Computed example of a mutant assay.
Amino acid sequence: MASLNRRHFSLAGLAALAACGAPTPQTPTFKVYSGPPVTQVVVQKGQRRMHLLNGTTVLKSYDFGLGFQPVGHKQFEGDGKTPEGLYFVDRFNPRSRYHLSVGVSYPNERDRAFAEQFGRDPGGDIMIHGRGPEGNRLVRQKQDWTAGCITVSDEEIEDIYAMLQPGVPIMIYA
């Protein structure tokens, strides 16, 4: 009987060791950021430059593309414009068709009220995102191709995704 328990214990130990080397399901890996927190994002549409700041210190800066009608504030769904004004990081999408994406809190109350005056939908789902397969093809044709989002390279969105937290203000200037 003791021999049977030892054999059972030995088999259980071997099974446990074998499991250590077994392949695990592939899970997405994300960059980790351990620097100073980003306290605000400043987007300068006209200069096509975005800055991630801690206080007044610029931590990182990026060039970007915009919506297919980049001049002016987004007013309605389908207008191809990128919003202007104060918004906030409100969500993260690790399964974006554009690699990764970070949500911008457009539309706010003012945006909804403006569109409602005209019986229109203000639109939504504005993101800072990578290019993904579709964007890599489109960006070669022209810089501003999104429906109103801010687009950076896939590598850059990995950094941005790691650095931002929900609630960080995003100030978007003309």
Rank of each mutant, 00 (worst) to 15 (best):
31 K>Y: 04
33 Y>F: 07
35 G>M: 08
36 P>M: 14
36 P>T: 13
37 P>S: 06
38 V>D: 08
38 V>G: 03
44 Q>R: 12
44 Q>A: 08
45 K>G: 04
52 L>Q: 02
55 G>H: 07
56 T>Y: 06
56 T>C: 00
56 T>G: 11
58 V>P: 01
59 L>D: 00
59 L>Y: 05
60 K>L: 06
60 K>H: 07
63 D>T: 14
65 G>Q: 06
67 G>F: 00
68 F>D: 13
72 G>R: 11
73 H>S: 13
77 E>H: 14
78 G>N: 13
82 T>I: 07
84 E>V: 09
85 G>C: 02
85 G>T: 05
86 L>D: 03
87 Y>C: 04
88 F>V: 02
93 N>G: 07
95 R>C: 03
95 R>N: 15
95 R>V: 14
99 H>C: 06
101 S>H: 01
101 S>W: 10
102 V>W: 07
103 G>Q: 10
104 V>D: 05
105 S>R: 13
106 Y>Q: 03
109 E>T: 13
116 E>R: 14
118 F>H: 11
118 F>S: 08
121 D>A: 06
123 G>R: 04
123 G>C: 09
123 G>W: 02
123 G>P: 02
126 I>S: 02
126 I>H: 03
130 G>Y: 00
131 R>D: 15
132 G>D: 10
132 G>L: 07
132 G>M: 04
132 G>S: 08
134 E>G: 10
136 N>Y: 09
137 R>Y: 09
137 R>F: 02
139 V>W: 00
141 Q>I: 14
141 Q>K: 05
141 Q>M: 08
141 Q>W: 00
